[in-house]
């Protein structure tokens, strides 16, 4: 029988399977993203302590199966060093947290190392728990997660001439270059570009550098900044995120939209 392994993990997705089993997708600290099945999870509160729900943060114990994609989850336990995420007392927290889980799921691959992704997601969900959801936190998370995935978007200098942006001058976001070009360089860049207000560019540069807790207490970059990130995400993701529509309606203060 394969040896039991363990890692801290965040549950990204969970669904019931047959009468009492549960299939979960985990972002683990030590083994990247894993799919697992917990036999008897719905019946055994003792072994799983209700830790197999989205947003659960726990030590997960599992055994690999010789010929299966899903690992066997043997137990899940709370651990003092793993803070629980307090998400379910506010609709905006649930909406933004769900979006973060889905983005993390979409940008990680099973079997690939993802400790950085686990840390960004863990810090972001902790920040939501403490400070609530905000558009600035969303943007800061997106920038940090993209950076972890190797897509470090550049808003602090022009991709062409390295000049820093100014609040007074518009700049242009070019998806294929993963950053902005300044107004002076724009004529020499043949690709299509999204015009952004200077203030939005400066705000995004700041949000990309600030830690998540600090970012959540500042104002967000403008709607043009949100559009720039959204266009870039569409270019790197192979599917549209299902949680985006609900998040956008909740963030707009109109959850019934």
């Amino acid at each position: 029988m394969p040896a039991e392994e363990a890692s801290a993990a965040i549950v990204l997705r969970a669904r019931d399977y047959s009468e009492s089993d549960r299939i979960v997708t985990l972002l683990t600290r030590d083994f990247g993203k894993l799919g697992g099945i917990a036999k008897g999870a719905k019946a055994s509160r003792r072994r799983f302590e209700r830790k197999l729900e989205p947003f659960s943060h726990a030590m997960l114990y599992f055994r690999r199966r010789p010929h299966g994609q899903l690992v066997f989850i043997t137990r899940a336990e709370a651990a003092a060093e793993l803070r629980p995420f307090n998400i379910d007392d506010d609709l905006a927290k649930i909406a933004l947290g769900s979006y973060m889980l889905e983005l993390a799921d979409a940008m990680t691959s099973e079997g690939a190392e993802a400790e950085g992704a686990y840390r960004v997601l863990s810090e972001a969900l902790g920040t939501i728990s403490d400070a609530g959801a905000s558009p600035a936190l969303r943007q800061s998370f997106e920038l940090k997660f993209l950076r972890w995935a190797g897509f470090g978007l550049e808003f602090a200098r022009c991709r062409q001439c390295a000049a820093p942006p100014s609040e007074e001058t518009a700049a242009y976001f070019v998806v294929s270059r993963g950053g902005i070009v300044c107004a002076r360089c724009r004529p020499s860049v043949p690709e299509g570009a999204l015009r952004m207000e200077g203030a939005s560019v400066v705000a995004l540069a700041r949000l990309g550098e600030a830690d998540l807790a600090e970012a959540s207490s500042t104002g967000p970059a403008g709607a043009d900044a949100a559009l720039a990130i959204s266009r870039f995400l569409s270019s790197v993701l192979d599917r549209k995120l299902r949680s985006t529509a609900f998040l956008d309606s909740v963030m707009a203060g109109n959850p019934r939209a």
Binding site: D88, I94, P255
Partner: peptide, 14 residues
């Protein structure tokens, strides 16, 4: 569950 809480919060607000 998270889904149940989201639904409850949404209905309460509506």
């Amino acid at each position: 569950t998270v889904e149940g809480e989201a639904t409850a919060l949404y209905i309460a607000s509506a």
